[in-house]
Design a protein around this nucleic acid. Sequence first.
DNA 1: GCACAAATGAAATCGAAATTCATTTGCAAT
DNA 2: ATTGCAAATGAATTTCGATTTCATTTGTGC
Lengths: 161, 161
Amino acid sequence: MKELLKTKGFKMTPQRELIFSAFFELGEHVSVDELYAKVREVDESVGYSTVWRNLKLICRVGLAEEVNIGDGVTRYDRVTHDPHGHLYCRECKQFFEFDSEAVVDLMSAVADRQGFRPEGFKVEIDGVCRQCLRKSKKDNRNGRSGRSRTDAEKASGQAKG
Amino acid sequence: MKELLKTKGFKMTPQRELIFSAFFELGEHVSVDELYAKVREVDESVGYSTVWRNLKLICRVGLAEEVNIGDGVTRYDRVTHDPHGHLYCRECKQFFEFDSEAVVDLMSAVADRQGFRPEGFKVEIDGVCRQCLRKSKKDNRNGRSGRSRTDAEKASGQAKG
DNA sequence: GCACAAATGAAATCGAAATTCATTTGCAAT
DNA sequence: ATTGCAAATGAATTTCGATTTCATTTGTGC
């Protein structure tokens, strides 16, 4: 690791070491804030911008890549040997992963057909996960209803959503 | 269209009508700014927030959905009957599209396997498009080189990227 | 040790997204 | 056509994540 950085002209500092290892201890889909919190558990003095810059650095050297699901927060995924896609549950806001040889094959087939050189892909399926499906079924049985705001009310910017 | 809105409790206004039709005149991957510009060509008095809110409304009623490629700008895609994926060229920053029955099938297969109810999916392949591949080959032949900044220089936040 | 580029931390800045608020407008019921 | 009122509008503002600035400190090669 240290060598990977050195050969590219980067220095190794205590903060950097801490940030890197913290990133790899956390799972996938790490946001800057999450990483920052994790790092601060160990060393209170590390600055936010240092965490941010090092997260970018981790990407730059090819150990992670950005993931965007559209909630306004960029997350970072460790680059593994097996590419994967994401299932995102709209109810519980959680990520699930899936690996699929088939997806990879399909992606390259599609790219090939258009003379496109693929360098990476992102596959995201939005929906509702098993747990939440169960839960909402139960809620329906118990007769949960009560809508408080009309569609129009929600659409206008009059209240926090 | 007018009816679709009415049934959901929304009113039709001149601005809304203009914004909706402008959105559908523009192609895919429309940003708020693009739509705003388009709308202002016709009516100088329409406000930015009105455009923004109506673009959200278009999504809310299911006629469009957000697309995020990670460049910090949210774009909106018209929802068509045939779902599609995106090819994004890292060189020219352009989008290309592809349709594929196979992708859809694969997506639902993956979701099924995990008891996940899919409501939508996003497939993005990043890479380099045909044109840019050609261009970079040519550049190489002409001996373009010259690096001005080290990796470390680019990684630190000292200069605009 | 010395030189010097790289790295750091605090604060400032940027920009897209979202909201506030005073005012206007669509439209359903008179 | 008038009226009541929620929805819609536009300008300005706020929010908030991402990114940069800058003065200072720190690694590394010599």
